[in-house]
Write a protein that binds this DNA or RNA. Sequence first.
DNA 1: GTGAAAGCGCTAACAC
DNA 2: GTGTTAGCGCTTTCAC
Lengths: 358, 358
Amino acid sequence: MSRKSPGAAARHTIRDVAARARVSASTVSRVLGGSYPVSTATRARVMRAVRDLDYVADARARAIAGAETGTVAFVLDDITGPSFAHMAQGVEREAARLGHLSLVCTTDGDPERERVLVELMRAQRAAAVILVGGVADSPEYRERMSRIARSLASAGSRLVLCGRAPFQEGGPAVVIEYDNEGGAHAITSHLLSLGHRRILFLGGSPANTTAAGRERGFRSALAAYGLAPERGQVMPGDFTRESGHRRIQEALAAGRSFTAVFATSDMVASGALTALREAGVAVPDEVSLVGYDDIPFARDLFPPLTTVHVPYEELGRTAVRAALGRGSGTAEARTTLGTHVVVRASVRQLGPGDSSDR
Amino acid sequence: MSRKSPGAAARHTIRDVAARARVSASTVSRVLGGSYPVSTATRARVMRAVRDLDYVADARARAIAGAETGTVAFVLDDITGPSFAHMAQGVEREAARLGHLSLVCTTDGDPERERVLVELMRAQRAAAVILVGGVADSPEYRERMSRIARSLASAGSRLVLCGRAPFQEGGPAVVIEYDNEGGAHAITSHLLSLGHRRILFLGGSPANTTAAGRERGFRSALAAYGLAPERGQVMPGDFTRESGHRRIQEALAAGRSFTAVFATSDMVASGALTALREAGVAVPDEVSLVGYDDIPFARDLFPPLTTVHVPYEELGRTAVRAALGRGSGTAEARTTLGTHVVVRASVRQLGPGDSSDR
DNA sequence: GTGAAAGCGCTAACAC
DNA sequence: GTGTTAGCGCTTTCAC
């Protein structure tokens, strides 16, 4: 007959259940834990009490007392980006399948915030921390990552780098990547094989490892044709549609001549497409356009966008499996998933006559 | 000199720190807690030990012992949808700002999974559980929600329904909505005022409260013009681009005549647009198209999509604020955020002559 | 200011 | 099978 004072709700404890079922707390624990032998009659009484009280054991207390479950922490720049969202989905699904909860935190690209979050996750005793997305590679970055990985490891947790460059061979971290450079190489070659030579590259920040990988692929494909980008042909930016939009406006204003545009992400391509349209440049008739990521929307652009498919959801799932996998994981400390070009309608084959459209 | 056996990492406890700093555990706790007076010298010694050991207090143990922090749980259908992603961002940001961690879980629309998740959150002693997205409204739903809200309340947690119909006036839940019906009414009126009369409505599942709200707005706007939808003019579906794509194909195949399409979401509109294009129907010249949600991509469609703007991120933020707000929150138990039409280029004004284009 | 002791809600080791 | 006794890692009285 416990009256709850309004506001301060009376949370029941295992002892309340025990009292009501006229058994000891350990018995309740055993019934709920499910692993130990308990007589049917007792079990029934306990279950009844649990039901009556609407009791749920405190997961934190359980964890402390030894019944480890562990959450998976997922730290990323911005959940709003379509590709990140898909990775998040992969993470959440696989974690759920494996019986874990997912903590997601965003950094807005701030390394300091990332540091704080990792510390928080360490305090939570997260089973694993998955760090996602390209970052500026630098000695400081490597040093920071090393520290993070070590402290996580010493807390019994594990660090997984997902779609991000490894900071140290054989370090205490698992790395799940996709073939960033290969995809860029392939789609550039696609453009090249269709006769395009003046290809504008709308890149990200050169310091960003993802952007850098894609740019490397672009350059290596060009090199395979004996070409090298001219001044102004590689335009840095970021991964937003606004960036794509602005860069195209700038390129057009500067009177730059190109027959194709390789945008480092579909978002960028999307902004670029709009800018081209606004300027009255027909795609793909006058200028061809390709992107990267293969977000679902790519096929609804007009024209449907030729792009590089990245298995984002799979990336997330793989990260979780690696993170939660048994052993210290040295065997599969590094995994690279494949990418491939998906051809749609935003690229046109160039005839011999029209090599200098714009 | 504690040697860590490889694999089984030695997590340090507060006692290790205490020993190293030659103080008691309570003192360490006080230093770390920050609230109690500790001499500068002691504090320095403790901090040094903490640093040396790379110690982080176990958040779960702290929580149990009384230092409440509390995570915010965010339960949604599918993190992949652009609008949900923005809400998630709002939730995560606001929670972070308020010093809370966010747990996100997806249900894939399965009510049973939702139940399980809520139970899990209750076990975690989450400060609040935010349930997102339209659901099938039914007596069972209301009953289920009631139970959930009560059990959450009795666990000292709080239930927030976000963009989802309330299940009970004055129940133990906070409801944050947006003006779903009003937005649909407004954009339908927009179409009507431009001369459109035969408007195809690509809806969601009629049982879904969000879809139903939008359909109500559509119908009420029609009614204000003395119109009522004909047979086949309202086509049910779901919120995916595939649904929009398929419905348009069906409508076209059935030889249905319409001058405008109102898709219940931008995703649906996006699929519809592609289907129209594939069928050689010009938008907006032959058929006008509007969507709902105003996802970032809407402006990159061709033509840029006229749609209803929904403040998704704000919705998420508001939900968190309401959830974490002081008091029992009866005062602001229900909040409705506004929506508004954003006009772009996918709608054409109809002249007197062309009322039956298609 | 600081330490010892009690306790948070639970599980696990040890009895019987 | 079941109760009793110790913890888990921490905070918080309550003393001095």
